[in-house]
Design a protein around this nucleic acid. Structure first.
Length: 428
DNA sequence: GATCATGATTTTTC
DNA sequence: GAAAAATCATGATC
């Protein structure tokens, strides 16, 4: 880069004697006064201006003469300085750009996605996070996981290949331009600073290309990610066991099918799904059950019978009664540990501070009552499914078409129930 | 491929 | 903010 000053200096010591076409006072070096120097520069500029009008051979000869002129280095320096002070300085000021926020964002994202970071484990963490976020359960998820990883690796490879290509091209082009400018600096005023600036421009141009590459890569990753994560697109039915667990809970809490957060967490754990999926399931179930009770009657029968069996086991075996997969109305004693499920018998436990077992018995009784109510509805001559279900859970859906408030168990807030009706009150 | 079932999302309501 | 209701999108079955 610092060839130019030395180059110019070497020219300065080269004598100009004997060159044709130059005024005598320039050849013998006698013009040392101010006027003479002005005259010199004027002559040289004149020759430069008219050089294109001359024939090639003549021009070459002139060029050579000028190159060897003792004033040339000084003239070059002056022209370089002028360039520095005018155009380049303005351009330079404009080129001082703040660090690109978008580029930083892209870099961060690529790093986070494991595309631009270290190879080891690249993307697997993101994939794992994506898998966790998708809420999918175990086995079929692993296939998607590996698929995601494979595609991410592919993107990563393409990205690095292209990046390498760009860097190589950038280096080659920079070297080429630098050599060219150095070569040209012999014949026109090009300072090292200007070369440096040119290199900067080239790098910026390649940087913008790289940014486009990064942008495209980010887009590809986002598409891949959205496809992988889009649970709706990749909807999988819950497995049979999970559905059973959820249904058992739903039908055994038909009077108040609103699991507490704790219960949801427990259900989620047991079903290997997320809490939000549990919430979704209950939301869907409630609305669909309410819309078409008759349709769910058979299902209700099955789970009611199951609950009855479990309840009788509970009565027979005391604290061992509640199967983990068959929570009854008193969730507190069941495997779901629903200390605040909103179920009536929860309150019994909390109010009746004397015995845990007592609450359990109450729970079992409640479950049996629910079941009995259902059996009565089935055998009591109700052909209409809706009527039957109303009999099964007369207090479950209120006049407004909704379930009773979760915090106010229906048995305590339904004075309209006839004396003959099966009651879910603790008095039972 | 028509239809139903079902999980997820969005909008509305309270 | 949670639940209800409406809707979407996909899977399963025939």
């Amino acid at each position: 880069m610092d060839d130019q000053p030395r180059l110019m200096h070497s020219h300065a010591v080269v004598g100009m004697a004997g060159h044709p076409g130059l005024p005598q006072h320039m050849q013998d070096g006698t013009a040392t006064d101010g006027d003479g120097r002005k005259q010199d520069i004027g002559d040289i500029l004149q020759q430069i201006m008219t050089i294109t009008d001359q024939s090639l051979d003549e021009a070459q000869a002139r060029k050579h003469a000028l190159n060897c002129h003792r004033m040339k280095p000084a003239l070059f320096n002056v022209l370089c300085e002028i360039k520095e002070k005018t155009v380049l300085s303005i351009r330079g000021a404009q080129e001082e750009e703040p660090p690109d926020a978008q580029l930083m964002r892209l870099d961060n994202m690529l790093l986070a996605e494991g595309v631009s970071g270290p190879e080891k484990g690249g993307g697997s963490a993101a994939a794992a996070a994506a898998a966790a976020a998708s809420g999918g359960a175990g086995s079929d998820n692993s296939a998607e996981h590996s698929d995601y990883r494979a595609k991410l690796t592919q993107i990563r490879q393409i990205y690095h290949t292209e990046l390498e290509k760009y860097e190589q091209a950038c280096n080659e082009f920079t070297t080429h331009v630098m050599n060219l400018l150095r070569e040209q600096s012999r014949t026109r005023p090009i300072s090292p600073k200007e070369i440096e600036r040119m290199v900067g421009i080239i790098h910026r141009k390649f940087s913008s290309i790289q940014m486009q590459l990064k942008q495209s890569t980010c887009e590809a990753v986002m598409i891949l990610r959205s496809r992988f994560l889009d649970a709706r697109r990749k909807r999988r039915n819950f497995n049979k066991q999970a559905t059973e667990i959820l249904n058992e809970y739903f039908y055994s809490h038909l009077s108040n099918p609103y699991p507490s957060e704790e219960a949801k967490e427990e259900l989620a754990k047991k079903c290997a799904i997320t809490v939000s999926q549990v919430s979704n399931w209950f939301g869907n179930k409630r609305i669909r059950y309410k819309k078409n009770i008759g349709k769910f009657q058979e299902e209700a029968n099955i789970y009611a019978a199951k609950t009855a069996v479990n309840a009788s086991h509970a009565s027979a075996h005391g604290s061992q009664a509640n199967s983990p997969s068959t929570p009854n109305s008193a969730g507190s004693s069941g495997s779901f540990n629903m200390s605040n499920s909103g179920d009536l018998f929860m309150n019994v436990q909390s109010f009746n501070g004397d015995s845990y077992q007592g609450a359990q018995v109450g729970a079992n009784v409640q479950s049996q009552v629910d079941t009995l109510r259902h059996v009565i509805s089935q055998t009591g001559g109700y052909s209409d499914g809706l009527a039957a279900s109303q009999m099964y859970s007369p207090q479950a859906i209120n006049a407004n078409g909704g379930w009773q408030d979760a915090t106010t168990p229906s048995s305590l807030t339904s004075p309209t129930e006839g004396p003959g009706s099966v009651h879910s009150d603790t008095s039972n």
